[in-house]
Structures are given as C-alpha cells and as structure tokens.
Amino acid sequence: SIKEIEKEEIIKVLKEVNFNKKLASEILGIPLRTLYKRLKEYGI
C-alpha cells in the first residue's frame, strides 16, 4: 500500500540522516510538522 511505501521511505531517510528530523523532512520534501504527524500515525 502507499502508506507502507511512505513509512519505509521515512524510515530509510531517517536512518540516512541519523534521525535528524529537520533534515529528513527537507529531503522528503514535506514540512517538519507533517513528518511528526506521519511518525505518530505510523508509530515510528
């Protein structure tokens, strides 16, 4: 599903940037606030 793909992509990017959420949100092209929402939604 799209949610699974998105979750995997978020985890992959977070690992690449050593869990720097600000940098991860910039790489993913989403606002930091949205990233936090996704992390909560996906239980990351």
Results as ranks from 00 to 15, higher is better:
residue 27 I to P: 00
residue 10 I to V: 06
residue 38 R to F: 15
residue 43 G to K: 07
residue 2 I to Q: 14
residue 6 E to R: 10
residue 25 S to H: 03
residue 36 Y to S: 09
residue 4 E to Q: 12
residue 28 L to C: 02
residue 29 G to S: 05
residue 10 I to L: 13
residue 21 K to S: 09
residue 15 K to N: 10
residue 5 I to K: 14
residue 4 E to D: 14
residue 8 E to V: 08
residue 5 I to G: 11
residue 26 E to T: 10
residue 17 V to N: 08
residue 32 L to Q: 03
residue 25 S to F: 01
residue 33 R to M: 12
residue 8 E to S: 12
residue 21 K to I: 15
residue 13 V to G: 01
residue 14 L to A: 01
residue 16 E to L: 13
residue 19 F to P: 02
residue 13 V to F: 03
residue 5 I to V: 12
residue 7 K to S: 06
residue 1 S to F: 04
residue 20 N to Q: 05
residue 3 K to W: 10
residue 40 K to S: 08
residue 28 L to D: 00
residue 30 I to L: 08
residue 31 P to A: 11
residue 33 R to Q: 12
residue 41 E to N: 04
residue 10 I to Q: 01
residue 15 K to Q: 12
residue 19 F to N: 09
residue 29 G to D: 05
residue 17 V to Q: 05
residue 39 L to E: 01
residue 8 E to C: 11
residue 40 K to L: 14
residue 43 G to L: 06
residue 40 K to W: 13
residue 3 K to S: 12
residue 12 K to V: 04
residue 9 E to T: 14
residue 23 L to S: 06
residue 36 Y to I: 15
residue 15 K to R: 13
residue 5 I to C: 09
residue 12 K to I: 05
residue 36 Y to D: 11
residue 16 E to Y: 10
residue 2 I to S: 13
residue 8 E to G: 10
residue 11 I to D: 03
residue 11 I to Q: 06
residue 16 E to S: 14
residue 12 K to F: 06
residue 43 G to M: 08
residue 8 E to N: 13
residue 12 K to Q: 09
residue 3 K to L: 11
residue 23 L to I: 09
residue 24 A to K: 00
residue 20 N to I: 04
residue 21 K to W: 15
residue 11 I to A: 05
residue 24 A to Y: 01
residue 15 K to H: 13
residue 40 K to N: 07
residue 19 F to E: 03
residue 34 T to L: 13
residue 20 N to L: 03
residue 40 K to Y: 11
residue 27 I to E: 03
residue 37 K to Y: 07
residue 35 L to G: 00
residue 37 K to T: 07
residue 25 S to D: 00
residue 30 I to T: 02
residue 40 K to G: 06
residue 35 L to A: 00
residue 35 L to I: 04
residue 19 F to D: 05
residue 20 N to F: 04
residue 42 Y to N: 03
residue 25 S to L: 02
residue 23 L to V: 08
residue 37 K to S: 08
residue 34 T to R: 05
residue 19 F to S: 04
residue 18 N to S: 08
residue 8 E to A: 15
residue 38 R to H: 13
residue 19 F to V: 01
residue 7 K to D: 07
residue 15 K to T: 11
residue 6 E to I: 09
residue 23 L to M: 11
residue 20 N to D: 12
residue 3 K to M: 12
residue 35 L to H: 00
residue 42 Y to K: 03
residue 18 N to C: 11
residue 24 A to Q: 00
residue 43 G to S: 06
residue 6 E to C: 11
residue 5 I to P: 12
residue 38 R to S: 06
residue 24 A to W: 02
